[in-house]
């Protein structure tokens, strides 16, 4: 800062010329930022490296084909220990499937309502509530599933077990709602108003306009939001650990206890598997599998969003 002020004699340009800027500091900034960024990059590589290294050790003890195609997951069995990951994958897919079955229709209906029907006033009222939903810790969702949803479902599905895929899936579906709603609503709202006008001017109703013009125009963003939500559901840990049980089964039953990739990792990590045992390494292999799932889904979402963006 400088105390020189423009006067009749002194023009602003002279004051600017006289003002001393701390050039040294300005030159350090990019280096500082680069350093901070490098830490992030290194952390990412560090995590992936650890994951890969331990996974590699695991596959020296268990055949990779037995792992990928095996239908029995019995790591704690002394007699016939088995590391076939398919039961964990089916468990994970059951949760994600139920979650999407709940989350997609409800989420898209909400998004269409908010972007095409709601007045600003209603929007102002509903949006904070959805944000509230997004702010609920997953552990709370978990015991909501266990203590509210399961007993309620049991009142009309008597064979439903205390720990089951169905109620955990439903609650994961509720958990991913805010994500689907807000991302899809962004995509719908980004559709130019002139498309809606064109459609109304031809005599279409609000609903026809929403479904036949606005929705297709926003489809890439909506698809991306669904895939990201699916990826969230696949990676969800707390709700399934609490409400879905820990029984790795390879079947199509939604009423009984299952185990997902995430809840297996929790089970081992919170148990007392010794360092260096096959069980210890198995959580890395499962973790790597999970990482592959979510990584590919996130890439797919990004790809769809950029590749299929409407050209208007």
């Amino acid at each position: 800062m400088t105390s020189i002020k423009p006067t009749e004699k002194l023009r602003t340009r002279d004051v600017i010329a006289a003002a001393k800027k701390n050039e040294k500091f300005g030159k350090i900034i990019p280096h500082l930022l680069l350093a901070v960024t490098s830490v992030t990059v290194l952390a990412t590589f560090g995590i992936i490296y650890t994951l890969l290294k331990e996974t590699f050790i695991f596959f020296q003890e268990v055949k990779i084909t037995d792992f990928i195609f095996g239908t029995e997951w019995a790591p704690f069995s002394n007699a016939d220990q088995a590391f076939g990951v398919l039961p964990l994958i089916t468990g994970t897919l059951k949760i994600a499937g139920v979650a999407l079955l709940i989350g997609v229709p409800f989420g898209l209906a909400c998004a269409i309502f908010l972007s095409e029907y709601a007045t600003p006033k209603i929007k102002k009222f509903i949006k904070p509530i959805i944000e509230l939903l997004a702010g609920i810790p997953t552990i709370v969702y978990g015991f909501f599933a266990l203590t509210v949803v399961t007993p309620w479902l049991q009142s009309f599905i008597p064979q439903l077990k205390l720990f089951n895929a169905l109620s955990a899936g439903i609650v994961v579906g509720i958990m991913i709602l805010p994500m689907i709603i807000s991302l899809s609503e962004d995509a719908l709202s980004a559709v130019p108003a002139s498309f809606r006008e064109g459609s109304y001017a031809l005599g279409s109703t609000r609903f026809e306009t929403a479904i036949k013009v606005v929705f297709p125009a926003a489809i890439s963003g909506i698809a991306a939001s669904i895939i990201l939500a699916a990826s969230r559901a696949v990676g969800e840990t707390m709700i399934v650990s609490l409400a879905a049980g820990s029984t790795p089964v390879f079947n199509m039953d939604f009423t009984g206890s299952i185990q997902t990739m995430t809840s297996y990792i929790v089970q081992v990590a919170t148990g007392d598997a010794g360092y260096g045992t096959t069980i210890y390494y198995s959580i890395y292999a499962v973790g790597f599998m999970l990482f592959l799932f979510t990584f590919l889904m996130n890439r797919a979402a990004l790809y769809i969003k950029t590749k299929f963006r409407e050209e208007y």
Partner: peptide, 12 residues
């Protein structure tokens, strides 16, 4: 019918 100032075909 109505025709607008800026052409507004649908993205179809």
């Amino acid at each position: 019918g109505m025709v607008f100032q800026k052409p507004n075909p649908f993205p179809k």
